[in-house]
Design a binder for these strands. Structure first.
Lengths: 207, 207, 207, 207
DNA sequence: GATGAATGAGTCTTCATTCAT
DNA sequence: GATGAATGAAGACTCATTCAT
């Protein structure tokens, strides 16, 4: 967890970047390794030297996103919560969205790949669950509990609350960045506040 | 609704069903025409006799869903709205979800295909917009206006309201039926009410 | 040989005409039976009812040309020669070209097919030789002999003379109608005379 | 002439040779790429690695013939003409036939392919015209003019003379090597002299 | 006689993967 | 490590031919 980034060579980075772009644009099954080699300006064989198979390349593209994005997202913010840095849950949600904004935009293709390919790759799904399901979900439950105890969250089932918040956020991200990127959206801050406002008057007990 | 389905033969239906299942399961690009032929128990050539190309088959799978589901969904309910059958917007939303429930479950694979393939097929997107964007969106705007005038909807931008309601519903459908079908969900009625409740306290002005 | 044209039905004629056009335009191997059916406005099965196979259709297209064109060409003119109607060989050659002109132009596609497909179909070649080699060639030899005896033809080998005349005529036809139809050629009469003139001062002894 | 053949590998040569033989024997449309692969003893994929498509292979087979045969044929001999090496046009024609004899025999299949496929491939025709029509035709006109000025050629239209000589030569080549290779021809020298003799007494003014 | 749906072998082409250099 | 030529299985698609209606 400390230094798992084992010094990628220039070629490896080029391959990963090319693969990320192409997988996001045309899907995993719709992208050929020769296209990737071409875009990365390496020989086709080089890809297989570093990532044993095409599937291995997909995992290499998608894994760091799970490790670097989802895990830290919770770990960091959870600590802040417990350190009393977020008195109100609104602040926690806002932070979760705000802090990742940059990362989301930079890694949008990876996210797109993740969302699009998970249904077709059981092993991807497993890996995803391995990180999110068991590790993060537990911590999210702690957080929900924390705010429920503070009286800031409705007394619904924990999982329902998590689901509601998660889908509120994800639906916005998916809609804005994956399905309708060309629609004229409001500023991100405005949309963020709208999500919070909706959640606030909805499942969040004010007072 | 009367006779637009120009008598599909048994084989055509078998092909469409096999294609629908396989596209949903493994994605369009990940499914081979020989697999489809195999599952439909027809010769591979038969597929191409009826649907000029693999892409043509995809459109044949997905088009009726747009024509039969989305268009009627609005047309019928819009009339009911204007006929004063839905005094409260909650009833309208409930009806939209309730009425389609059966159709959604029956045509879930199609919906899954639509959601998953739209990003990769500009022509699919166009066809989708052709049905939803220009025809249906306009009518949705009318409905929103109608309830805004009645004071039942917040005074936000029309499009924002539509988006919020739509993503609330879609996020539930996608989460429940596409991404996490094996999670233990509450009864559909309960979830439906939850959506309405969230929307109610959120963007819907009570009183 | 008397009435071998066994009353062709309308559909049969349509098929033969469509096949002739398409074979000439795209070659035998490059034309599909469905294209032919399409152009002839009959069902694909109908083609096979009448002409057992695609190859059978080719033979049906090409055979009459050999029977109707080459055989009569000689028979008729040979008689005229022997009836003293052509005192000079020039008249005989001129007649051969003149008389067939209409037929050539009307049946150009068939001729094109014959020339183009003979190298690929041993049975076609055999059929051709059956008509030309054994039947016609013998009669041509008679004619050459006849004019050689009259002192109008050089004392070369009979076959060489036939070859020379034949290639002179054929090279003109092939060049004009098959390879370079769009070049600006002189009137047919002028070209005909040119062929004769060249043959005249070449292999034909004047006086 | 020095290094335009950019080092063909053994496999590429094997493919080109197999394709040349098969195209000549069965025609382009009548030959399958798997047959070619088989004969060349390479994998089918290898063909497409080197020649992007079947059509590309056809061009690769036929192009060098145009570049190496037709262009040099004229260029070399034209210079000799202008260098006064051929005082009489007979010598020029004889040289044209003689010098190429070896090449013709070695590349007969290619020539056969060229003749047979040009009618079906507009792009082949264009390429052919590009080399023969504009480059060589002009030079041929110069040569004709040259000998007309010397009084050795009849005062006909330049193009007619070229056509006559060309068809005289081509008809002989096509007849001897393409259509009737098994007929008992005289020695090549004898036939060559015959062509010249016919042309001589025909269009060539013997002072 | 005529149809056209159905077939499955065969076509051209692409692809992930390997391996000698 | 890096290459890219080579592979052959698999892909989408076409075709001549058959047969029940």
């Amino acid at each position: 967890m400390t230094n798992n980034e084992p010094k990628l060579t220039k070629k490896q980075i080029a391959i990963l970047e090319a693969a990320t772009d192409l997988f996001a644009e045309k899907g995993y099954a719709g992208t050929s390794t020769s296209e990737i080699a071409n875009k990365a300006e390496v020989a086709e064989g080089t890809i297989f030297k570093h990532f044993k198979s095409k599937k291995g390349l997909l995992l290499a593209v998608v894994s760091p996103m799970m490790v670097k994005w989802l895990a830290p997202m919770i770990k960091k913010d959870l600590n802040k919560v417990l350190d009393q840095e977020f008195e109100y849950i609104q602040d926690f949600i806002r932070a979760m969205i705000e802090n990742r904004k940059e990362f989301i935009q930079k890694n949008l293709p990876m996210l797109k790949i993740l969302v699009q390919e998970i249904p077709f790759h059981p092993d991807l799904k497993e890996k995803f669950i391995e990180y999110v399901g068991n590790d993060i979900f537990d911590k999210l439950r702690e957080i929900v509990k924390y705010y429920q105890d503070k009286g800031q969250l409705a007394d619904m089932k924990t999982d329902t609350i998590i689901r509601t918040v998660a889908t509120s956020i994800l639906s916005y991200i998916v809609a804005r960045y994956v399905f309708l990127p060309e629609a004229n959206w409001d500023d991100e801050e405005v949309e963020t506040e709208r999500i919070i406002q909706i959640l606030e008057s909805g499942i969040i007990q004010n007072k």
